[in-house]
């Protein structure tokens, strides 16, 4: 699905990612954990193609294509989805209208016919139910006046609508209460299939009780320094990150 090799990236001349390697295969769930400033969100931003990040070395191959060579929208059209840590409020832009436009541009990119209004509305009803998002909310302006939990549910709703191959959830658990966390995680689990993959970026182990990872990676100072099973997350929760530093003599 995605192969990241020796990825170096910097912002404003400051190097954040310092040789990151990661391979994710279809059907897998990977968790990336790490202390503040380790580069977790930078990784998500670089993969999605956010302006301001400079990739100084390394390669990212996504479904056989050089991801870093693609524009942000083409990455999305190829099947990459980033659930934002801080979803943006866009007053006046209707959630469903923009999703329909996005869906149709993705279809056009793949040479498919646009979705008709009836099928689209059916899809909206079906997918908004997955994250228990009120249909009224789905048709309002993008995230405008949404609570923290509604914003995150809206991210997963959009993910459900666009049906990506690889979803990167950037601290989707931040700002969620237990109920919202359960709904969001449940949504992600429903969308899981042998054909797609998920990268869950998180600070806390809590989310991983609901979205069970196949691999847990520890990101530290711009590199993945340790990889383990889901038990590693529990250990991190209990012991913090310092022991890894000591163990690896960083």
């Amino acid at each position: 699905m995605i192969t990241i090799k020796n990825l170096h990236a910097s912002i404003d001349g400051k190097e954040i990612l310092k040789g990151l390697n990661l391979e994710v295969k279809a059907g897998e769930v990977h968790a990336i954990m790490g202390p503040n400033g380790a580069g977790k969100s930078t990784l998500a931003s670089v993969l999605a193609g956010r302006d301001g990040y400079e990739v100084t070395a390394g390669t990212v191959v996504f479904e056989g294509k050089d991801l870093l060579d693609l524009k942000t929208e083409d990455r999305a059209r190829e099947g990459l989805f980033l659930a934002f840590q801080y979803p943006i409020e866009i007053p006046g832009v209707s959630n469903v209208n923009f999703l329909r436009a996005a869906l149709n541009e993705i279809k056009e990119y793949h040479g498919e016919d646009p979705i008709n209004a009836k099928d689209f509305l059916k899809l909206v009803r079906e997918k908004s139910a997955i994250v228990e998002l009120d249909a009224k909310l789905a048709s309002r302006s993008v995230n405008e006046g949404f609570s923290g939990g509604e914003k995150k549910r809206n991210e997963i709703f959009q993910m459900a609508m666009l049906n990506p191959k690889l979803a990167i959830l950037d601290e989707t658990d931040s700002g969620l209460d237990i109920d919202a966390l359960r709904i969001v995680a449940n949504g992600v689990n429903i969308l899981k299939s042998p054909e797609n993959a998920t990268i869950v970026i998180t600070h806390y182990q809590r989310l991983l009780d609901y979205i069970v990872p196949d691999f847990v990676h520890v990101l530290f100072d711009g590199k993945i320094v340790k990889t383990g099973s889901k038990e590693l997350a529990l250990e991190l929760e209990e012991r913090g990150y310092d022991w890894i530093k000591e163990e690896l003599a960083l």
Binding site: G49, F81, I88, V93
Partner: peptide, 8 residues
């Protein structure tokens, strides 16, 4: 960027 990240 947000809208582009959705494929627009």
């Amino acid at each position: 960027f947000y809208l582009r990240a959705r494929g627009l």
